[in-house]
Amino acid sequence: MRVVVQEAPFDFGAEAEAFAVGRHDMGAIVTFTGVVRDFGKGGLDAMEIEHYPGMTQKALEAIADEARNRWFLGDVLVIHRYGRMEPGEKIMMVATAAPHRKDAFEAAEYLMDYLKSRAPFWKKEHAATGETSWVAAKDEDEDALTRW
C-alpha cells in the first residue's frame, strides 16, 4: 500500500505501470484519475487545493486500510495533490489490484467516495474574471457513503 500527498504533478503512466508489479496472483487492476475540470466553458483559471498537513496522510491511510479490510486486495495506491492546478491537470489517482475485477472496481469506488468527503482537502476555484469561490460539498457526495 502506498499513500502519497504532494504538491508536485505525478506521472500517471509510470505510476500505473509500476503498480502491483510482480503480483502474479492479481488478475485485475483498476485506476481512477481525477482531473481539474473547467465546467464554466473557459471560465476557470485554476483550482487551488488546501489541505490539513498532519491529518491528511493519516486520514488517507485509514481509508485505504478500511478498503483492504473490506475487499480482497493485493495492493492499493492513493496519490493526492494540493496547491494550485490548471484545468486538465491531474489532481489525484487511486489504483487497486485484486484477483478479480469486482473487488478492484468496488474498492476503487469506495476509496473515491471516502476521499471526497472524509479526507481533509478543500477546493477553491479561481475564475478567469478574478473571482474566487470555495467549492461546496454536495449532499450526493455525503449520501454516497451510505451505500458502503
Binding site: M112, S117, R118, W122
Partner: peptide
C-alpha cells in the same frame, strides 16, 4: 481525528475547524 461538536477536548493538543471536505 474527525469528530462532532459534543466531543471532549480535555487534554487535546489540537482542534481544527473547517467546512465539509471536497477532496477527490
Amino acid at each position: 481525528e474527525l469528530t462532532d461538536f459534543d466531543a471532549s477536548i480535555k487534554g487535546a493538543r489540537e482542534v481544527a475547524f473547517f467546512p465539509p471536505m471536497t477532496g477527490g
